[in-house]
Amino acid sequence: MTFPVLQTERLQLVEVTPDHAEALFEILSDEAVTRFYGMDPLQEKSDALNIIKSFKQTFDGHQGIRWGIVIRDSRTFIGTLGLNHLNLYGKKAEIGFELDFAHWRRGYSSEAVQAVLTYAFKTLGLYRIGAVTFLENDASIQLLKGLGFEEEGILRGYLFQGGTSHNGRLFSLLRPDHESSYREDRL
């Protein structure tokens, strides 16, 4: 399968390659970014290369797709966004993302997530997209709710970071809900 490149008004979602390792390291070594990521901040640049290698293996194994988020005008790499735990047969996946702190609150995450949701439902034919956040991750919770995700409950001890297990808040969006909100946006 060829890696699917997606375009939005301001962004291009591309395959993450070793060329992005330096930028990915800078993003994932920032404690503000990884605070609610489910992973401790990176310490070594080689860790970024290992993560990029795992993205490729996951894609090649049809278990997920992780896009690099690039600002089209400047070609600046600002984060990643992915469909994790992809199950084409079961028509489901889980979405996750992180963004460089310098680019927060500009609508980039929402724009990128919307493009991936459309791709997941229309091209891949998925029926359900899940998302799990830390309980305190208000920014991601508001973004998900704004895109039509519904809260389903709490997953006890689901996330592990900083040597401790944390509860996670579970959200989902189903294809019929996305299609109806997509139609409403177009009216």
Rank of each mutant, 00 (worst) to 15 (best):
W67G: 06
F149A: 15
D100K: 15
K145G: 14
R169W: 00
L42V: 13
T164N: 14
Q7I: 06
F121P: 12
V116S: 00
F121D: 05
D30Q: 01
M1A: 14
T118N: 11
D177G: 12
G96M: 01
E111Q: 10
Y158L: 08
A48K: 00
Q142I: 14
T164F: 05
P176Q: 10
E15L: 09
H85G: 03
D73A: 14
L170Y: 00
T8A: 00
L147A: 05
L187T: 03
F149D: 02
K91M: 06
L6Y: 13
R105G: 05
T58E: 09
R105T: 11
E150S: 05
I51F: 10
E94F: 03
G82S: 15
L147I: 07
F101Y: 03
L86A: 04
I95Q: 11
I154H: 07
E150D: 04
T58W: 01
V70D: 04
V33S: 11
G38H: 14
G146D: 00
L174P: 01
Q7V: 02
F59T: 06
L49K: 10
H62Y: 11
Q63R: 13
T80C: 04
K45I: 12
A120Y: 04
H103Y: 15
Q63A: 06
T118S: 13
F55M: 06
T123C: 02
L124R: 15
L11G: 10
K56M: 11
R105N: 15
E31L: 14
K145R: 15
H178N: 04
R72S: 08
I65R: 05
D138Y: 02
T133V: 07
I154T: 09
L144C: 09
F59W: 15
E15G: 03
R156D: 06
L170D: 15
W104N: 07
E150P: 01
S46K: 06
A131R: 06
F55W: 01
M1D: 02
L143F: 13
E15A: 11
H166T: 07
T17Y: 05
T76M: 05
R72H: 14
T80P: 09
L117V: 07
W67M: 08
A32F: 11
I65T: 15
R175A: 13
N137S: 12
L143T: 13
S165V: 09
F160T: 12
T58C: 15
V14D: 08
D60M: 04
S29V: 11
F55C: 02
L124N: 09
S180I: 09
L173M: 10
D177N: 14
L49G: 07
P18Q: 04
I129Y: 10
V33G: 08
Q63W: 08
G107Q: 13
E179K: 13
L86H: 02
E150Q: 04
R66A: 03
L173G: 07
H166W: 06
Y108T: 11
V16I: 00
N87K: 12
V70A: 00
V113A: 10
D19P: 00
Y37P: 00
L6N: 10
R183E: 12
E179Y: 06
Y119R: 05
I52V: 08
N167D: 15
I52A: 10
G163Q: 09
F55I: 04
F77Y: 12
G146Y: 13
E151Y: 14
F3E: 08
S165Q: 04
S110N: 10
F3I: 08
T164I: 14
